[in-house]
Design a protein around this nucleic acid. Structure first.
Lengths: 122, 122
DNA sequence: GCAATAACGAACAAATTTGTTAGTCTAATT
DNA sequence: AATTAGACTAACAAATTTGTTCGTTATTGC
C-alpha cells in the first residue's frame, strides 16, 4: 500500500502537477508494462498469448500489470462471446492506441543510440 | 548495489533484448529524470537553477539523477570558462536532444487524456 | 476421478529506488 | 573568522516495486 504522505509520494504528486509528462511516464514505467502494451497492439491480446511472448513473467505479475494498465485506461478486458469458459481479450482503448506510436518513437530512439553510451555532444 | 543475478535484474535484461523500447523506458523512468531533461532543454541547465525549478528535490538526489543521466549519455557536464569557482553547465547530447520531442509527445498524450481514466474504447 | 488450460487474487518476501544525514571543497562576502 | 553559495559524494534508512507461494473457478481430455 502507498503511504500517501511519504516524501516520495508527495514528490510524485508535485511532479504530476508540474507537467503531464510525469504522469505519462508513471503510467508506462514498470518492468513489463510498455512491452505488454506493444505486444497487445501487435495482436498478442490474450493472457496465454502474452505468457508465451514473455516466458519469464509469472502469471501473477502479468495479471497485476494488466490490471494496472486497465486502471490507467490503457486497455480494457472484453469477454469473447460464445467461448466456454469465457475467454478474455485485452483491447487497447483510444488512449492506449495513441500511446503506441510514441512507444515506437522511443524504440527507434533507443535503436539509434544503441551502445553509444558516450555520445557526441550536440 | 544491483544483484546481477536476481530474477528482477534478469527480467530487465530479457526485456532489453526483446526491444530497445524497454531500455529507452529504463533510461527515462525514475522520479525526477525526464523532468530534469525537459528543464535542462528549456535552459535550466545549472545545478542551482534546477534546484530552484524543483524545490522539493534534495541536492543529493538531484546530483544522483544528473549523474545517471550522464551515465546514459543524455547530458554532459561542462565547466564554464572564466568562473571561479568553476561553474558547471549541463548540456544535452544529441541523444538527449532527440529525446526532447518524444517527451513532448508524452506530455501532450498525458494532457489529451487528463482525468479520463475511464476512456472510451477504440 | 485426475490433470491440464485459461485467468486470475491475496499475502508475503526479496530487490530496488528514493530520500536523509552528514560531510567536502573553493572562494567571495560580512 | 564565520557564513554563504555552488556543486557535489558516501552511507544508511524508508518506501515502493517486483517476484513467489498458495489458492480459486470452470471445462475439456484421458
Amino acid at each position: 500500500m502507498r503511504k500517501e504522505r511519504s516524501t516520495n509520494a508527495m514528490n510524485e504528486q508535485f511532479l504530476f502537477g508540474v507537467c503531464e509528462l510525469n504522469s505519462a511516464i508513471a503510467v508506462i514505467s514498470g518492468r513489463w508494462k510498455s512491452q505488454i502494451v506493444y505486444s497487445v497492439s501487435r495482436g498478442y491480446n490474450r493472457f496465454h498469448l502474452l505468457k508465451r511472448e514473455l516466458p519469464n513473467i509469472s502469471e501473477q505479475v502479468l495479471g497485476r500489470q494488466l490490471k494496472e494498465l486497465e486502471t490507467h485506461a490503457i486497455l480494457v478486458k472484453k469477454e469473447i462471446a460464445g467461448t466456454v469458459p469465457t475467454g478474455i481479450e485485452y483491447i487497447l482503448t483510444n488512449k492506449g492506441l495513441d500511446l503506441v506510436p510514441i512507444l515506437e518513437s522511443l524504440c527507434n530512439w533507443g535503436k539509434a543510440y544503441e551502445g553509444k553510451e558516450i555520445a557526441a555532444c550536440g
